[in-house]
């Protein structure tokens, strides 16, 4: 069984947000509620200022606090280590959102991040809270894995495109869009990354590209102090990824 992980090279990432857009299209996301977001940080004031950015998917932690706090086991870990939400069991208590150190979870029944509320223009039917014009094929939908159009009253999060990666050939080390044999199983954000800043593969496979990059370029994880052990690694030229706190934006 693979242990899927992602590597994001911050030295290559241009902050173009193609990953964000691809993820939204692939996973029926509401505008502004991006499972795969690119966070921008501005420091200092003109003319001495700096803009930096950090692509931020779900960290798919090995020791996820969201799984520990979910009172119904609606948030769970698959055998291959991907953290998913079973929408059939989610009670919408939002404890997982409170407990996630990375802020990557989204509740459906909140005020829209982007006005006007697109849900009003594309009303849903049945379990679907809305009916996005760009939605994924129906056969991919699986509420027990939090894949599809998010119903009302439940929490959602990045699935590492589980509907794709779970279909990957057994024993494959990396899911690479450049490889025709694995392209279809590669997560959307990795597939569309134009500067090729993202890599996806099996962290348990010593031959995988992700392991090679982590070892050779000093891959680091965010907020190690939480003990959540993310499976998303960042490459930043050997140093820690610079994620300014809120206080650093003060002049």
């Amino acid at each position: 069984m693979p242990k899927w992980g992602m590597v994001i090279d911050l030295e290559t990432c241009t902050g173009c947000q193609a990953c964000t857009t691809a993820c939204a299209m692939e996973n029926n996301r509401l505008p502004g509620e991006n499972w795969q977001d690119v966070l921008f940080y501005s420091e200092g004031s003109y003319p001495n200022m700096k803009l930096s950015w950090l692509p931020r998917p779900c960290m798919q932690c090995e020791n996820p606090s969201c799984v520990s706090v979910c009172p119904t086991r609606a948030t769970y870990q698959t055998e291959d280590g991907v953290v998913l939400v079973d929408w059939n069991k989610c009670i919408g208590c939002k404890y997982c959102m409170v407990a996630c150190p990375y802020g990557v979870r989204f509740y459906m029944d909140e005020k829209p991040v982007v006005e006007p509320d697109i849900r009003a223009a594309f009303p849903g039917e049945g379990q679907r809270s809305w009916n996005p014009p760009f939605r994924m094929p129906d056969e991919y939908e699986d509420p027990s894995k939090g894949i599809g159009i998010q119903p009302k009253g439940v929490v959602s999060k990045c699935t590492f495109c589980y509907h794709k990666v779970s279909q990957a050939p057994e024993g494959v080390a990396d899911l690479d869009e450049a490889n025709p044999e694995t392209r279809e199983f590669t997560p959307a954000c990795v597939r569309v990354c134009a500067p090729k800043a993202r890599f996806f593969g099996d962290l348990d496979n010593p031959e995988s590209k992700v392991n090679e990059l982590i070892a050779e370029k000093g891959g680091v994880r965010l907020k190690e102090e939480t003990g959540n052990k993310p499976k998303v690694y960042y490459l930043s030229g050997g140093g820690a990824p610079v994620v300014p706190g809120k206080r650093s934006t003060r002049s």
């Binding site: 009172p71 059939n88 009670i91 509740y107 009253g153």
Partner: peptide, 26 residues
């Protein structure tokens, strides 16, 4: 306030997520 309060009635006791303080609270 809850998204799906009725599901909480059966899903919380039946799934035994003992690491969650909310499980014990319920």
């Amino acid at each position: 306030e809850l998204g799906n309060p009725w599901i909480a009635l059966w899903a919380t006791p039946l799934n035994m997520q003992t690491s969650s303080p909310l499980f014990w609270k319920v």
